[in-house]
Amino acid sequence: MRRTLCGGLQVTDQLRYELSKALTAAGIILYIPANFLPVMTITITGQVESLTVMGGVMELYNTGLVPVAAVVFLASIVVPVVKLVSLSWLLGLHGSDIAASRRMNVHAFLNRIGTWAMIDLFLLSILVAVGQLGILASVQAEVGALFFGAMIICTLYAADIYKTYMIWQQPLPKSQ
């Protein structure tokens, strides 16, 4: 199972595993600023408000948009956490035969929900594009969104690069 990537880089399963691990680690690191830095700044009649992801969910909830808040909460808070935790679990158990079939289901689930977290960025990009009403109201994206997006991309690729069949691989014999 060798494929040649650009530059003659041979894509081995080992590379996939390592790359997946590195991306997951990067995702975990990025998760921190992504959630603690504001993703956007809303200015409505001079009231400046910088919102983190969670803050945005709370804002939506307080505004009364409970279903939307729930969707954003699921997609932006729950899904990334679930992904990061599941990925760590998958990669941690790589090579062992513990709960292999369950791991396979989890992996398939990960790939399916992977892009959902992008809903927050999608929402934000529309808000920024539309919400420009001069001094009355404006929406600006903040660095948090950058971290958040990077985190989502890392987890997406981590889940994608780690292939299902690799779950079933024999554990490597330990070197003496």
Binding site: Q14, L15, A22, A26, I29, V143, Y165, M166
Partner: peptide, 30 residues
């Protein structure tokens, strides 16, 4: 058949660490 583990490979995949390093560096820089 699946998976080759070797020193050279091990060395060659070390570059993947650049991702977590970039992430950490970006966070720290910001």
């Amino acid at each position: 058949d699946h998976g080759v583990v070797s020193d050279s490979h091990k060395r060659s995949v070390a570059w993947v660490l650049i991702f977590p390093i970039i992430a950490a560096a970006a966070t720290a820089w910001f």
